[in-house]
Design a protein around this nucleic acid. Sequence first.
DNA 1: CAAACACTGTTTGAATTGCGTAACAAATGG
DNA 2: CCATTTGTTACGCAATTCAAACAGTGTTTG
Lengths: 228, 228
Amino acid sequence: MADKILIIDDEEMTVHLLTLLLEKRSFEVIKAFSAEEGLRKAYRHQPDLVLLDIMMPDMDGWDVCKRLREMSDMPIIFITAKDDTKDVVRGLEMGADDYIVKPYDNDELIARVRAHLRRAPKPNMSEEMVFNGGEFRINFMNREVRVRNELKHLTPKEFNLLAVLVRNAGRVVPRTELVTEAWGEEYADAIDSLKLYIHYLRQKVELDAEHPDYILTSRGVGYRFANR
Amino acid sequence: MADKILIIDDEEMTVHLLTLLLEKRSFEVIKAFSAEEGLRKAYRHQPDLVLLDIMMPDMDGWDVCKRLREMSDMPIIFITAKDDTKDVVRGLEMGADDYIVKPYDNDELIARVRAHLRRAPKPNMSEEMVFNGGEFRINFMNREVRVRNELKHLTPKEFNLLAVLVRNAGRVVPRTELVTEAWGEEYADAIDSLKLYIHYLRQKVELDAEHPDYILTSRGVGYRFANR
DNA sequence: CAAACACTGTTTGAATTGCGTAACAAATGG
DNA sequence: CCATTTGTTACGCAATTCAAACAGTGTTTG
């Protein structure tokens, strides 16, 4: 999934250029044209990284940085025309991760963004790499599935399908979404295959495949993984 | 306890100035005046962060960076006179965390060092990385692998491949990621070679190559080094 | 209520893919 | 020049995927 990057800057041109640059590398960009809007969108969208200007009319970047740090640990990169070393130091000591001075080089900016994303704690690491629903455990990291402590061997397509169901546990996932998420866009109309793979999964995972406990049907819509 | 910083640079003056600067802020400094010495001391002292020059007589900084990354996740900061953007990008994409161009500002350098230390996980590289209850030992410094106390000789490509697997122990590493990480971007579609080298590794490392204990296949996805 | 219909589940067997291995050729390096 | 390392191709075998037909079961409709 594409990383979400929030840009906070009151200069429309800067935001525009950054957006083009980032979207070309298939990042997902969220734009904010004031400090206040930036904080609101940071809260709402939970970006993976923030690019932050310092001089803005309503509130300065320092305060935004402080407020962002209060809510999350995401990487923050100042990107500004203020090239005084004092400011660089101040930004970094304030909890920012990097400080880039305009005019910046496009490739370098991308490389720095990537470097910080690489380091950042990925939410789907460790904890969320494992789903632990009582007698049903799935480890996304090593692609192992255990039911009632028994290791079940799944094929790649079986695992991917189950993974999507489990990630959306409790919610009915529409058939089309299910197959495209699990196997790719080109499977958008493979609902016949879907029936088959649901069948395979139930055989391997359910105690009684005819009365499934986990993989439930939502007639006319899709399937749902029971939560607890 | 004070953070340990390893400086690798063949110019004595640079090392000296950096040492003064860092020790004044009560960091613990380890000095290395060549690439080889740097690797050895990185291995021995397990620094919390590395400051690395690029141009050195015995081995260039890129290779040092690669070798350091094989053994640990510690932050690496290039600090060099090469100010070409191409080099900055190359350094960052290679796994370094920052790239500082000489002449640098003292306060900014300190601020950047602190910023990276703040983010980085404490190194847990042990004298010898040990897996599987001591049956499997891999020494990144002298690139030795021992299985059941037997020394196994691996070729460079074999070792690099194994290193990537071991550093991701427990996680299925997709085939493409495996080859690019181990051998470089240009191997992105060398999945045929991958099969071959997996074969070689298993011949050398596994008790029974047909029923591997360590190097496990995840059909259709990649390979995984067993943990525990 | 019963017949037609729509949707989901199941079976089967065949086609395809992927992995491991072998054999061998080429390149590398002391 | 020889030994080691790396790279290419091919093939058997098994796992996986796929297509198609069929069998249930619930739903709509006259």
